[in-house]
Amino acid sequence: MIEAKFEKYTLIFEKPSGTSRGVLTTKDTYLLHLREVEKGNNRGVGECGVFRGLSFDDVPHYEEKLKWLCENINLDKETLKEELRDFPSIWIGYEQAVANLLYGEALYFPSDFTDGKDSVTINGLIWMSDREEMIRQIEKKIAQKYSCIKLKIGVDLESELDILRMLRLSFPKKVLEIRVDANGAFSYDKAQMVLEQLALRDVHSIEQPIKARNISQMADLCRNSPIPIALDEELIGVVEPESKRQLLQDIKPQYIILKPSLVGGFSGSDEWIEVAESLGIGWWITSALESNIGLNAIAQYTYTKNNPIPQGLGTGMLFVNNFQSSLILKKDKLYFEKSSKVCF
């Protein structure tokens, strides 16, 4: 018999963090706690990392669905999965909590990573800000020996393009990989110009140049772009496996970006990866502003997928009131420190 409860937790950013959607100062998340009554009170925790304004399941009755899960936690997995199909952030919290209940401490996906024998390479994330602050962020990541950085763009394009130009003068593409993320900031016509300008600066790829659900326009951009395009928000809310395949066949992107909390948890991410690889489409995994609890679980999952390119898992240090982490960063390598325990 398993007992379940949830609690709301508000993460506070150390610095206001800018995206093309606005500036973030706080982020609400939910922790799902499980207790196995009949087996020595074993406990597990998972994070239901809803992302307000972006998550498919950002709905008024979100907490009601969490309450339903706690009251029905002992139903079989397939029944719960079907009921939570439209609540990916709750489903991944369940997946995490069940795995943690099984393995204990801060473990979700035991591997050489959690044994401290291997690492996950990550990109350095540069948040939108004024020119001087973005340059400071970039200089810090380069000093920390990152081989790949990702810049949020779409607020002050002229300044952002100039920063990229200056960056390339000092760091050619064989030394530094540059990714950019527009979060759907550009119109179709503007995006075509932006893609050309990014190509001149040897940018590796751009995430979501136009808003999601403009299938024909996105397909046209992917077909003609001088640099690879990665789908991100485009994947949110696409639930059925066949719908996932149809979307990727229609658009034919070069990459997809998987945020497990937004695209159906670990099982949903597995479906996306299977479809993408069958179509010759690349992918990588990123966090979505989870606390260290969710970030830890996602990092462990990511390692098991054996993808050697830099992953987007570097958001754990953004919050002043985060939980103790089992993850440590050495240059651009993320390691799991087995002696640590996540506190919750």
Rank of each mutant, 00 (worst) to 15 (best):
N41E: 10
E196C: 00
D332H: 12
D76C: 10
I328Y: 14
Q300M: 02
M218Y: 10
K330E: 15
W284Y: 12
S89T: 10
W127E: 07
L198V: 01
S129W: 12
L289T: 03
P60M: 10
A297R: 02
L75F: 14
G282C: 07
L151D: 05
A106I: 03
K330P: 00
L102I: 13
S325A: 09
E71I: 05
K39H: 14
E82Q: 15
L80V: 06
Q246G: 01
I227H: 01
V203A: 02
A185F: 13
S170K: 15
P308I: 06
S20E: 05
K341Q: 08
S55Y: 03
E132G: 03
I135W: 12
L101I: 04
K252W: 06
R35K: 15
T10K: 10
A106L: 03
A219S: 07
L101T: 05
L248Y: 12
D58R: 01
E207H: 01
I2H: 08
E105A: 09
P16V: 03
S111C: 10
G116P: 09
D270H: 13
L34Y: 05
V239D: 05
E95Y: 01
L24I: 11
G18Y: 01
S216H: 13
F109N: 11
Q324F: 04
R223W: 05
Y255M: 11
K333D: 06
V342D: 00
V59K: 15
S111R: 05
I236Y: 06
K77D: 13
K174D: 15
N214C: 04
L31Q: 02
D57C: 07
D189P: 00
N292Q: 06
M317A: 11
K8T: 07
D112Y: 09
C222P: 10
L262G: 01
K141N: 07
A299N: 03
G53R: 02
M166W: 10
G124W: 07
E233D: 11
K65G: 00
P60Y: 13
L75R: 15
E78Q: 10
N321T: 07
M218L: 15
G312A: 07
G53T: 00
K77W: 14
L69V: 10
Q192R: 15
G104Y: 05
T29D: 02
R201Q: 03
H33I: 04
Q254K: 14
E14Q: 12
L200T: 08
T286I: 07
K305Y: 09
K331A: 14
I178H: 12
